Amino acid sequence: MTGRSPAALRHRVFAVLIDAAVTTGVLAVAGSVVVTLSALTDGAVPLTALLPTAAGASAVWFVVQTALQGGAGSVGMRAMGLRLAYADDDQDLGFGRALGRNLIWVAAGSIVVGFFSPLFDGSSWRRGWHDLATAAVMTDAVPRRATTSPGSRLADLVSDVAPASSPALAPVAPTPAPVTSAPPQVVPEPVVIALGSV
């Protein structure tokens, strides 16, 4: 666990909920395909095909989900900025370990308490039984920086957007307002009107 920050437990919970919603969507699409085909073929495709279709879609999605988790992360993990890593060297967990982790999670969840096993770990890593068995850790995909003040946090954000040497962010000395001289005032000469005798 070199140089990585442990994932916040709430982020892990949200990632699981997002993944569950995506899985529900996949199963709903598979089911709607069967229902639509049954309606279009006047029952030639029986509604009893819903069960095997759902089972097949679940198995395929389980493999896809596992591959995503072992690599760059599942949909929920990416949305929450999380990554599964191998505890010893922080490399991607890989498909084999991710598969073992998921199988253990499902088995432990069958007794319900397994779903809550991360709560039994008093460390900041909150490793559940499935994590411990496969030497996995859930980390932040981008390590958090230790900052001490709002000003330094703002400086970090600015430095992420553009390098400090960027001309767009270089300090610019204020230029003085141009000095304009007022136009000379013309004082009209008094007009003398000579009145002649009439």
Rank of each mutant, 00 (worst) to 15 (best):
Y86D: 13
V63R: 08
L154Y: 13
D121M: 00
V161T: 13
G114N: 06
N102V: 03
T147N: 09
L82P: 08
L132H: 13
P52V: 04
Q91L: 03
A79D: 07
T148C: 04
D121H: 04
A107E: 02
A55P: 00
A168Q: 12
A55W: 05
G94F: 04
G56L: 11
L51P: 01
L132Y: 08
V113I: 15
D160R: 15
V75Y: 10
P52D: 07
A162G: 03
T66R: 01
G94A: 07
R145W: 01
G81M: 03
D140T: 14
G100S: 07
W105D: 02
A133Q: 02
W105I: 02
D160E: 13
A141L: 10
N102F: 04
G56A: 12
F120K: 02
G100W: 00
L154C: 09
A54L: 15
P150K: 08
S166M: 00
P118Y: 01
F62V: 02
A162E: 06
V137N: 06
R83W: 00
A146V: 12
D90E: 11
D90R: 03
L154I: 12
S117F: 04
V63W: 09
L103F: 05
G70D: 05
H130P: 02
L93N: 08
D156M: 07
L99I: 04
G109N: 09
G56M: 06
F120P: 02
L82F: 10
S110Y: 10
G114F: 01
A108T: 12
G128L: 03
D121L: 01
G96H: 06
A98G: 12
G109C: 04
F120W: 15
L157T: 11
G151H: 11
S110W: 12
S74M: 01
V137R: 14
V60W: 08
R97H: 07
F115K: 02
V137A: 14
S152V: 11
I104D: 02
L132A: 11
S110A: 14
L157S: 13
Q69T: 11
A162Q: 12
F120H: 06
A164K: 11
A141Q: 13
V158R: 15
V63H: 09
A98E: 05
S117Y: 03
T48G: 15
R127V: 00
A98T: 10
